[in-house]
């Protein structure tokens, strides 16, 4: 594996050069809320110890709302005008492994058979500079979903702090190699063995459950009353889905702008909303919150795995940190694991 070294100072110059080369730099904001674009390399604040922001960077590749085309109802017919695909070159700087993986996971659903170019264009225009993660709290569970704080899966480049003012950077993908090429003068040659030693010293979150056990338990215990416990306290908001780095469900709605023209929008939607599956006839296939909560867990740990061979979860813990009623997905998975172990 190719590895380079860079000082903090040169990293700032790197950021400056990227801004000059018309890249949009996107980082965790200082308030811990969301990812933000920076316009100045002085704002480059990255650290392996940062807590994950409340919202992931999903919004930049899968917008919370975006026009998919415009329409103009004219006397002699309807005119449809394509929505411009964004050409913005984005760099997600210092992404935790649990965020870095998200684009690859969502890419599966946006590309089986039909291709969603709104997502694809942004994904192709994105460079993910991942970073080793040293943040831990009781909501983190990346190691239970085949990731880890040192995983470069999903990153194009991967930063490893070697001391306060120095980083090693691994070139993970071809895309990453091409991207870094014009800036190589800022980097020195590194030695992968040194960083392997760093990785070994990283304290990994304890593995709380086996995702494969969860998958098979759900398959065999769909009607289990266990889901009622979360279902009866879940208030049915979309916080969990919207802060999730990989939840990708959406709605399509028309908006009028003036009398005869308007646009069709693609908006985030969530399976926890009671209206999500409601038929025009009034029939609702998932008519209570227990069923809707079960759908969330099942989609993440079973359906998506069966269909796309990926767990629809990166273990970032955002949904649990932010849940208004404290529903903790990691804890639920752990409990399901023990239910499975006790064969209840």
């Amino acid at each position: 594996m190719d590895e380079k070294l860079i000082t903090l100072n040169n990293l700032k110059i790197f950021a400056e050069e990227l801004l000059k080369a018309n890249y949009t730099l996107i980082l965790q904001d200082k308030q811990g809320i969301r990812w933000e674009k920076i316009s100045n390399s002085d704002e480059l604040h990255i650290s392996s110890k940062l807590k994950p922001t409340k919202a992931s960077f999903k919004e930049f590749v899968f917008s919370k709302t975006e026009p998919i085309f415009y329409f103009n109802n004219k006397n002699d017919g309807v005119e449809l005008i394509d929505s411009n695909l964004s050409a913005e070159k984005m760099v997600f700087f210092g992404s935790k492994p649990c965020d870095a993986k998200s684009i690859n996971i969502m890419s599966k659903v946006f590309n089986w058979d039909y291709k969603d170019n709104f997502f694809n264009t942004k994904a192709e225009n994105s460079i993910v500079i991942g970073m080793l993660c040293e943040y831990r709290d009781e909501f983190c569970f990346c190691t239970s979903v085949n990731l880890s704080p040192v995983s470069s899966d999903g990153s194009d480049l991967f930063l490893i702090p070697t001391d306060e003012n120095n980083f090693a950077i691994r070139i993970v993908t071809e895309k990453g190699r091409e991207f870094i090429q014009p800036f190589l003068k800022l980097f020195a040659e590194g030695n992968p063995e040194t960083t392997d030693q760093i990785f070994k010293k990283i304290n990994l979150p304890e593995k709380g459950f086996e995702s494969e056990v969860i998958r098979s338990w759900i398959g065999n215990n769909f009607e289990h009353k266990y889901f009622e416990r979360a279902g009866e306290i879940c208030l049915g908001c979309g916080q969990c889905a919207f802060v999730c780095p990989v939840c990708h469900c959406f709605d399509i709605v028309d908006e009028e702008c003036g009398y005869s023209c308007g646009r069709r929008m693609k908006n985030w939607d969530a399976c926890q909303f009671s209206l999500f599956t409601l038929h025009g006839s009034g029939h609702n296939p998932r008519h209570n919150q227990t069923q809707r909560y079960r759908q969330r867990i099942s989609h993440k740990f079973k359906y998506y795995v069966d269909k796309f061979d990926e767990i629809l979860c990166t273990g970032c813990g955002r949904c649990s940190r932010g849940c208004p009623v404290g529903i903790d997905i990691g804890q639920i998975a752990k409990e399901v694991h023990s239910l499975a172990a006790n064969k209840v």
Binding site: K64, G238, Q239, W268, P324
Partner: peptide, 12 residues
């Protein structure tokens, strides 16, 4: 501008 329409405010 930040609002993501998750309706947590309403649900809670």
């Amino acid at each position: 501008e930040k609002c993501i329409k998750c309706y947590a405010c309403r649900q809670v």
